[in-house]
Design a protein around this nucleic acid. Sequence first.
DNA 1: CGGTTGTTTGACACGCGTCAAGCTTCGTGG
DNA 2: CCACGAAGCTTGACGCGTGTCAAACAACCG
Lengths: 235, 235
Amino acid sequence: MGGPSSSCKSCSLRPVCAVNPDELACSQQMEDLVLGYRHVKKGEALYRFGDVFTNLYAVRTGSFKKVTLLADGREQVTGFYVSGESLGVDGIANDHYASDVVALEDSSVCVMPFDLLELLTREVKAVQHHVFRMLSAELVRESNSMMLLGTMTADERVAAFLLDLSSRWQARSYSASAFVLRMTREETGSFLGLKLETVSRTLSRFQKQGLIQVNGKEVRILDFAGLNDVAHRGA
Amino acid sequence: MGGPSSSCKSCSLRPVCAVNPDELACSQQMEDLVLGYRHVKKGEALYRFGDVFTNLYAVRTGSFKKVTLLADGREQVTGFYVSGESLGVDGIANDHYASDVVALEDSSVCVMPFDLLELLTREVKAVQHHVFRMLSAELVRESNSMMLLGTMTADERVAAFLLDLSSRWQARSYSASAFVLRMTREETGSFLGLKLETVSRTLSRFQKQGLIQVNGKEVRILDFAGLNDVAHRGA
DNA sequence: CGGTTGTTTGACACGCGTCAAGCTTCGTGG
DNA sequence: CCACGAAGCTTGACGCGTGTCAAACAACCG
């Protein structure tokens, strides 16, 4: 199982994992359970729509996509998740997960049994507050995605997408300007409400315009200001 | 302030309001605070983007729209809320509300100070569980809206919108087939990621097809099965 | 090495946005 | 209570941005 990895520094569940044991009235078994790990191979599901809800997860290594299903079989990617980000909150509402979460590469997560979290939440005020913020933050993120899908052009969406990824890498002390797109063009398109051809064409054009450099899944941002203009004014 | 109104029956915050006083270790002042009301006139804001976060709300009477703002000034309606539905959760993440919430008609809400709710949540397990579910349910709702914006055609969006409103009215013991659209065509369009003209045209066509009957803001659903087909298969 | 999956690019089509005009409803003040 | 202006709705004509279809290439994997 091993000790806390370096990725814990920026983990969204850190305040929970890192809770001071002295604050706990009940048990020390907490630690073992909270720190369970699970590995998920590329293409496999961490959980699927309809599975009984038991755990929250934090991405330790790798990356995931969240896929939401429509009654008639259509599906859409509704989120990408990298190290430190939390997964599984959509299961709280109905005791069953409301989406599929699939690994984009060989990945691992921290497992956090929800009943334990609830218990902890009642004992430690700081934990409670943090869990609330985590849920609310996810809500704000989704509102922003709705904005993207509802009001932005294809160019604006792709530019905003690249900048979002960039800032999330940066928050994890990786390069903000060069990174690898773990998702396919089709998955990217699904998330952005575009067809894969449109994503491909847009990336190519951005390259011709000197905004970025693309080579398959490798991306390098050359002109942040320019990309930002495209994202916010379509220029 | 008056006793619980009939709308409390289906209120998303009912388990909080209706908490058994005997379960509380601390205080009976709870009741007074939880049951505070506030009236909001048509066009006025319950809260605005950036306001300091203090309360959650439950709609008592009337209806509201939630408007999310983009950095560059663009805005989109990201939700409509009617009696029994909860408002304000987007403020938890950053201690400031992340959207504008505006009354579509003269309306009233139950006010629920969040620090009090946190306190209550630590004392009463049932309340805690319910608050979590409430937040998660909002997340699921937004995921569904993302699906709508990302994968559906104009016809499908409008049909799904009407059916969603219908089921929400029904859940409140109102007619599922006849109701009044409190929002303008422009607001509807903003929410659905369409222009107001497209919304108008689509409603007109649905009427010609015998699916609904429209008269300004009054809508009557004539063919649920047909509408459902349009929403799910575009037929 | 070969088959499968993913990517790029082109040509074309069409759904929805844009622009515009006229009508209806609502709100307010005389 | 009516009058007037503003706001909201409907409908038409037209154009553009994406989607669709197709073909060739590239990368991955067993």
